Simulated scan of single mutants.
Amino acid sequence: MNKQELVDAVAATTGSSKAVTAETVDALIAAVTGAVKQGDTVQLIGFGSFSTGARAARVGRNPATGAEIQIPAAKTVKFTAGKAFKDAVNGA
Protein backbone atom coordinates (compact mmCIF):
# COMPACT_ATOMS: atom_id res chain seq x y z
CA MET A 1 0.00 0.00 0.00
CA ASN A 2 1.39 3.37 -0.94
CA LYS A 3 0.48 6.78 0.49
CA GLN A 4 -2.35 7.45 -1.99
CA GLU A 5 -3.91 4.05 -1.32
CA LEU A 6 -3.72 4.82 2.41
CA VAL A 7 -5.46 8.15 1.86
CA ASP A 8 -8.16 6.43 -0.21
CA ALA A 9 -8.73 3.76 2.46
CA VAL A 10 -8.93 6.28 5.32
CA ALA A 11 -11.24 8.56 3.32
CA ALA A 12 -13.54 5.64 2.57
CA THR A 13 -13.60 4.57 6.22
CA THR A 14 -14.20 8.05 7.66
CA GLY A 15 -16.44 9.41 4.90
CA SER A 16 -14.14 12.44 4.65
CA SER A 17 -12.96 13.93 1.38
CA LYS A 18 -9.70 12.68 -0.07
CA ALA A 19 -8.21 16.19 0.03
CA VAL A 20 -8.87 16.61 3.76
CA THR A 21 -7.67 13.07 4.46
CA ALA A 22 -4.46 13.69 2.48
CA GLU A 23 -3.78 16.85 4.53
CA THR A 24 -4.40 14.90 7.74
CA VAL A 25 -2.05 12.07 6.72
CA ASP A 26 0.62 14.62 5.72
CA ALA A 27 0.23 16.42 9.06
CA LEU A 28 0.51 13.13 10.97
CA ILE A 29 3.66 12.13 9.10
CA ALA A 30 5.19 15.59 9.65
CA ALA A 31 4.39 15.52 13.38
CA VAL A 32 5.86 12.04 13.86
CA THR A 33 8.94 12.92 11.80
CA GLY A 34 9.51 16.14 13.74
CA ALA A 35 9.17 14.46 17.13
CA VAL A 36 11.47 11.55 16.26
CA LYS A 37 13.97 13.95 14.70
CA GLN A 38 14.18 15.77 18.06
CA GLY A 39 14.86 12.48 19.83
CA ASP A 40 11.37 11.90 21.24
CA THR A 41 9.55 8.58 21.12
CA VAL A 42 6.11 8.57 19.50
CA GLN A 43 3.81 5.87 20.86
CA LEU A 44 0.57 5.07 19.07
CA ILE A 45 -1.30 2.73 21.40
CA GLY A 46 -2.42 -0.39 19.56
CA PHE A 47 -0.09 0.29 16.64
CA GLY A 48 3.50 0.77 17.80
CA SER A 49 6.20 3.24 18.67
CA PHE A 50 8.73 5.21 16.63
CA SER A 51 12.08 6.17 18.16
CA THR A 52 15.70 6.82 17.29
CA GLY A 53 18.64 4.51 17.76
CA ALA A 54 22.38 4.80 17.32
CA ARG A 55 24.52 2.86 14.91
CA ALA A 56 28.23 2.79 15.78
CA ALA A 57 30.96 3.59 13.28
CA ARG A 58 32.32 0.49 11.62
CA VAL A 59 34.62 -0.78 8.92
CA GLY A 60 33.06 -2.07 5.72
CA ARG A 61 34.33 -3.34 2.40
CA ASN A 62 33.83 -2.03 -1.09
CA PRO A 63 32.33 -5.06 -2.89
CA ALA A 64 33.90 -4.08 -6.21
CA THR A 65 37.48 -3.63 -5.02
CA GLY A 66 37.56 -5.32 -1.61
CA ALA A 67 39.11 -2.18 -0.11
CA GLU A 68 38.21 -1.31 3.47
CA ILE A 69 36.08 1.78 3.98
CA GLN A 70 35.11 3.63 7.14
CA ILE A 71 31.34 3.83 7.66
CA PRO A 72 30.53 6.71 10.01
CA ALA A 73 28.23 6.51 13.03
CA ALA A 74 24.61 7.39 12.27
CA LYS A 75 21.20 7.81 13.85
CA THR A 76 18.59 5.28 12.81
CA VAL A 77 14.82 5.17 13.04
CA LYS A 78 13.30 2.26 14.94
CA PHE A 79 9.71 1.03 14.83
CA THR A 80 8.47 -1.39 17.42
CA ALA A 81 5.08 -2.94 16.69
CA GLY A 82 2.51 -2.86 19.49
CA LYS A 83 0.82 -5.96 20.87
CA ALA A 84 -2.55 -5.25 19.22
CA PHE A 85 -0.85 -4.75 15.84
CA LYS A 86 1.16 -7.96 16.18
CA ASP A 87 -1.96 -9.88 17.20
CA ALA A 88 -3.92 -8.50 14.23
CA VAL A 89 -1.16 -9.49 11.79
CA ASN A 90 -0.81 -12.95 13.32
CA GLY A 91 -4.56 -13.55 13.33
CA ALA A 92 -4.87 -13.89 17.10
Rank of each mutant, 00 (worst) to 15 (best):
S49Q: 11
D26T: 06
R58A: 05
Q70I: 09
V10Q: 09
G66T: 00
A57Y: 07
A11R: 04
A84T: 13
G82C: 00
V25W: 12
E68D: 00
V89H: 02
K78N: 06
T52A: 14
A12G: 14
G39K: 10
G39A: 13
A19D: 07
A22K: 15
K18R: 14
V42S: 01
G53H: 06
A31M: 08
F85N: 06
V36F: 02
I45K: 09
G15E: 05
K3N: 11
T65I: 12
R58G: 08
S17Q: 06
T80I: 14
A92F: 00
K75S: 14
K18C: 08
G66Y: 02
A64L: 13
K37G: 08
D87A: 05
A67W: 05
A54K: 13
A9L: 15
G39P: 07
F79W: 09
S51E: 02
T52Y: 15
F47K: 02
G91I: 10
A84Y: 04
D40V: 05
G60P: 04
Q4T: 15
T13N: 13
A88R: 14
K78C: 00
F50D: 00
T21Q: 07
A9M: 13
T24Q: 06
G34F: 15
D8A: 15
A11Q: 04
F50Q: 01
V36D: 02
F79V: 03
I69R: 13
T14Q: 15
V10S: 06
F47P: 02
I69A: 04
E68F: 09
Q43T: 13
N62A: 13
T14W: 12
T41G: 01
D40P: 10
R55L: 06
M1V: 13
V77D: 12
I29N: 12
A9Y: 12
D87K: 04
T41Q: 11
R61N: 02
K78G: 00
D8L: 11
G66V: 02
F85V: 05
S17E: 06
K75L: 05
R58L: 08
V77N: 11
A31T: 09
V10N: 07
A88G: 10
M1R: 08
A74I: 01
V10R: 13
T65M: 10
T21K: 03
D8S: 15
E68S: 11
A81C: 13
L6P: 06
T41M: 07
A81H: 12
A27M: 07
V42N: 03
G60V: 08
K18T: 11
A11T: 08
Q70K: 15
L44K: 05
A19S: 12
G82W: 03
V89S: 01
V10W: 10
A27V: 07
